[in-house]
């Protein structure tokens, strides 16, 4: 017997109603039920951080949370940042500083750093390095990501 729930999630400011099986992770609800494929899934057990989103403003791995748990809560995904025509400050900084190569891990890094810069708009290089260690990137060697985070912090206009 499937355990089915009707839930409502506020995603990037918009209320979305969806019917989910309880075992469906938030990541799969976002991607498959809501078509928000910007959230990527790497390891599906909380190690790689590719699926990082914000839940009630805090960074969370959407593979370690069930969609049904987000009922009545606010979720922010990479789709809520800038648009391709109008990147936000952090996204622009990733482009300027070559903070990505293949781009698979990028949405997770963007959401992780969005959370950091909201909590602490002026982090030290060490604090950025510590937070960036949360997520796995297999292309860049991280140097570009660290520079991008520094540039975004220094431009003191983190889009929210």
């Amino acid at each position: 017997m499937k355990d089915i729930h009707d839930i409502e999630i506020t995603i990037n400011g918009e209320r979305r109603a969806v019917t989910v099986e309880s075992r469906r992770t938030l990541a799969d609800v976002l991607r498959h039920d809501l078509g928000l494929t910007g959230t990527h899934l790497g390891c599906e057990h909380g190690v790689c951080g590719a699926c990082t989103v914000l839940v009630d403003g805090l960074p969370a791995r959407s593979c370690l949370m069930f969609g049904v748990q987000a009922d009545g809560r606010e979720v922010e995904t990479v789709e809520g940042l800038g648009t391709p025509e109008n990147l936000n400050t952090l996204q622009q900084a990733f482009m300027t500083e070559h903070g990505l190569q293949c781009g698979f891990c990028t949405p997770g890094f963007l959401m992780l750093l969005t959370a950091l810069l909201r909590e602490n708009p002026n982090p030290s290089d060490d604090e950025i390095r510590d937070v960036v260690a949360s997520n796995i990137c297999r292309c860049t060697g991280y140097a570009g990501i660290l520079r991008a985070a520094r540039l975004a912090a220094d431009s003191d206009a983190i889009a929210t």
């Binding site: 951080g49 839940v55 805090l58 960074p59 791995r61 992780l112 950091l116 937070v131 949360s134």
Partner: peptide
């Protein structure tokens, strides 16, 4: 606390 997982893990 900084030894525990990472920022996202520690937030949740």
């Amino acid at each position: 606390a900084h030894w525990i997982g990472h920022y996202a893990i520690r937030s949740v």
